[in-house]
Computed example of a mutant assay.
Amino acid sequence: MKWIKRILLVMVVAFVAFYLIGNPNGAAGAVRSGVDAVANALNSFVVFFSALAG
Rank of each mutant, 00 (worst) to 15 (best):
W3K: 11
W3R: 14
I4K: 13
K5S: 13
I7Q: 14
L8K: 15
L9G: 04
L9T: 11
L9M: 05
V10A: 13
V10Y: 10
V10M: 13
M11L: 12
M11A: 15
V12D: 04
V12P: 00
V13E: 07
V13W: 03
F15Q: 01
F15C: 04
F15S: 08
F15R: 05
V16L: 14
V16N: 01
V16W: 07
V16C: 11
A17Y: 06
F18H: 10
F18Q: 09
F18G: 12
F18D: 05
Y19A: 14
L20E: 11
L20R: 11
L20N: 11
I21Y: 15
I21T: 06
N23A: 14
N23L: 09
P24T: 06
N25M: 10
N25L: 14
N25Y: 11
G26R: 07
A27T: 01
A28D: 04
A28S: 10
A28V: 05
G29E: 05
G29D: 05
G29F: 01
G29Y: 00
G29V: 01
A30G: 01
A30H: 03
V31R: 06
S33A: 14
G34Q: 03
V35I: 06
V35P: 00
V35Q: 04
D36N: 13
N40Q: 15
N40S: 12
N40F: 09
L42M: 09
N43L: 14
S44V: 02
F45Q: 11
F45M: 12
V46Y: 04
V46A: 12
F48K: 08
F49P: 00
S50I: 05
S50L: 10
A51G: 05
A51Q: 07
L52C: 06
G54M: 02
G54E: 02
G54V: 03
